[in-house]
Structures are given as C-alpha cells and as structure tokens.
C-alpha cells in the first residue's frame, strides 16, 4: 500500500465510512422486518429479503434498517414484511415477492404511500 496524501486519506475515509455505516444500526428511523420463519423461507422470504436490501442500496437510502424476524403466525400470508416509520406507523404486507419488495421500498419508504392492495392486518 502506497503512502497516502491528505486527499487520498479523505477519499479513503469517505469510502470506508459508507461501508461502516451499513453496520451502524443506531438512529435509523425506518425499520423493515422480514418474516423468515420456516414457512416464510419456503415461501421465498430469502428472495424478498435480498430484493429489499438490494433496492435500498440501489436507491442509496441511509435511514433504513432491515432485520429478519421469526414466523409471525400468518403462514398463509408469508413472506410477511412489516415496515415501521414515523410517518406511516406500523404497516404489514403479505405474500411479498421480489417485485412487491421493490415496490415497498419505492412507494412506501421513498414516496410515503401505503400500498393498500397488499396490506394485511397482523392482529386479525
């Protein structure tokens, strides 16, 4: 590794901070939980999870954290995705495939609109 100039150190820091920020889970206001129980995984939750994470990265969103959660007791609706945000509260979606996953990022998270057609009620 060659010795750094001031500019190179700053460029390196910018790059590395962005990498590190992905590990940082503090102070994020939007939280996406993907149901990953056995039933969820069979129903394609892994694809759903990957699609959400990739779309968030593609759109460069920084204020979102995506975590996995065990089965939500709604096996017929798996994969289930819940989104918590200050603007829209807690909203759950059922049967989330890769396309709907990207739509959740674009419409729910970025545009701030609930996708009514796919919304489900977890309490029911």
């Amino acid at each position: 590794m060659a010795k750094l100039s001031l500019e190179e150190l700053r460029a390196l820091r910018a790059r590395e901070s962005a990498r590190m920020a992905k590990r940082d889970i503090h102070g994020k206001s939007i939280h996406v939980v993907v149901g990953m129980g056995t039933c969820g995984i069979q129903a394609g939750a892994k694809v759903t999870l990957n699609s959400i994470v990739d779309e968030i990265e593609a759109k460069g969103l920084k204020d979102v954290i995506v975590t996995q959660a065990p089965c939500q007791g709604k096996c017929d609706q798996e994969p289930v995705v819940e989104v918590y945000s200050p603007a829209l509260g807690a909203v759950a979606y059922g049967k989330v495939d890769a396309r709907l996953a990207r739509q959740i990022v674009d419409e729910h998270i970025i545009a701030g609109r609930i996708i009514k057609d796919h919304q489900i009620d977890l309490e029911a």
């Binding site: 001031l6 150190l9 700053r10 390196l12 820091r13 590395e16 901070s17 990498r19 590190m20």
Partner: peptide, 14 residues
C-alpha cells in the same frame, strides 16, 4: 486500519 479511519480515525491528526 480502514475500520478506524472509517470512524473518524486520523481526522484529528489531519
């Protein structure tokens, strides 16, 4: 060292 630099490492030295 990249991890340290990422978390504001060597900013003070600069």
């Amino acid at each position: 060292i990249d991890d340290y630099i990422a978390n504001d490492g060597y900013v003070a030295l600069e």
